[in-house]
Design a protein around this nucleic acid. Sequence first.
DNA 1: AATATATGTCAATGCGTGTTGACATACAGG
DNA 2: CCTGTATGTCAACACGCATTGACATATATT
Lengths: 189, 189
Amino acid sequence: MRNSDKTREKLLSAATEVFWDQGYSNTSLRQIARMADVDVALISRYFGGKLKLFEAALTAGLYWPELIDPDNDPIKVAIAKYTASSSEDHKFSITRMIVMNASDPQVGDMVRQTLFDTLVAPLESRMDGEHGAAQLAMFFSVIIGASVARHSLLMPGMAEVDADTHARQLRYLIDAALQFEISEEPTVP
Amino acid sequence: MRNSDKTREKLLSAATEVFWDQGYSNTSLRQIARMADVDVALISRYFGGKLKLFEAALTAGLYWPELIDPDNDPIKVAIAKYTASSSEDHKFSITRMIVMNASDPQVGDMVRQTLFDTLVAPLESRMDGEHGAAQLAMFFSVIIGASVARHSLLMPGMAEVDADTHARQLRYLIDAALQFEISEEPTVP
DNA sequence: AATATATGTCAATGCGTGTTGACATACAGG
DNA sequence: CCTGTATGTCAACACGCATTGACATATATT
């Protein structure tokens, strides 16, 4: 049975899994095709090239409707997303996606732009107070840093601890970030 | 005039600059050779291959004797290093080196190992208290996150501010990280 | 059943890469 | 000056990659 929609789906599914795991430049179309059990040539035919396929896989993994739902606290949703992806073997982690594609300018820009549109901007509109932007930036920086330190660098004191302990560390830093207020120049006595 | 030491130096210098800026996989030997105004073949001859050259460039940029000096507060040195590399157009930043090579397993491991040996281990031996390891890990995670958020993601609230403001943000998070203590399970009322 | 279109298969092409070996040339020691 | 070694130059190789076009076969339409 021949079904183009099905093969499109198989390709996108395999691409999503492997792009989110290995990044753009470290995955070949042949690998994706092998995974999906589909001929390589069909990728270019159906998606129009590697970059287009990546774009599709990127947005496919970034569909987070909970974040937009006005009934939810977006910060809590973001934290929940992080801890979930963290326990699931670090799959579908947006921080991983960022880091793994930071070296490629074209792809990196695409990831950053998508992240900004789907995550930063919605959150930004909900922050209030004079230092809202800074607090949000520090919130993100804390999450990214924790992700890299725990999963990439395997920092002792953060990598080997269980998920609950790590969540407590993260929560601590996030609370600090969200309470940030610009301090004046330190007063010299 | 022919001088092998000089060409070695030129190659290592160019390699250091470009590897620390672009990462391993995004740099070609031909680019380095062009920069150093040296034939490509000499790289393999003098350094034994791309990976060996990268290793040399890595350690060349990671020579930080101030960190070992027992008269200095290592945390302060690390902060100074970060802010210095941050203002100098983000050159020779170890956090950038980590992020830019995270996608390549082999190179990533090398970077992580080198970072651990030259930075984490010396600092770890100086941390005291029950939560020293966790505090150190959180210290690193804060620095890495801030670097990525400011220089890669260009997060509003962190990217456009001047160096002093950013230093204050960083300092705030670092202080929080270093004051971390494991909190017990939240008491349910 | 005959034809047209959609889908899949295969091989080839061009590109960039790191690495190697043969050759040329400059320099040093006799 | 002559010779041997160090250094530099050049071309070629083998590899993996994304992409393309020609062809084959299944499905749909008439």
